[in-house]
Amino acid sequence: MKLEERGIEIEFTDALDAIIFDQMDRNHPNYHGISDMHRVDFVVEFPLDIVFVELKDPANPRARPEAIADFHREIQNGTLAHTLAEKFVDTFFYRWAEDKLSKHVHYLCLVTLEHELLQSLSDDLARRLSPAGKVSSRWQRHPLRSCHIFNIQTWNQSFPKWPAKRLSSTDSQPH
């Protein structure tokens, strides 16, 4: 199953289901419909796991200058991890309401920056999603099995069954 967002395509070759979660066009399937909620880009289902995927593509040569400026502002003021965390939490909430959260949840972000920069961002995101890495003794399960931030290179090294690539301008289709 291939999904595309902002010129990056990921093929989840072994997925049971894969949807564009932030679909805000009511003429398409899986219309989200609540613009006030933060949304990850894709939700992908496997036999025992659910993977939320968020793409950030500052390296996209066709990205709007305002979007790149916004992204750099989020990096500079340290709110990028906060934004990514909000997307996870609202998506989790939404999928719970859909009664589609019965498996382990993983949150993977694909951000087109050098992977050296992504390590600290990954740590920051993980801290925000389970504050300070703490788990309550009352919890019967953890809301998040794993979260990490990749670039295209480390994504492809880590997930050979989910190849990601940047589409050329002629490949890219609006959705």
Partner: peptide
């Protein structure tokens, strides 16, 4: 460590 065989 965290994702086992997912995606591989």
């Amino acid at each position: 460590r965290r994702m086992g065989g997912l995606g591989k």
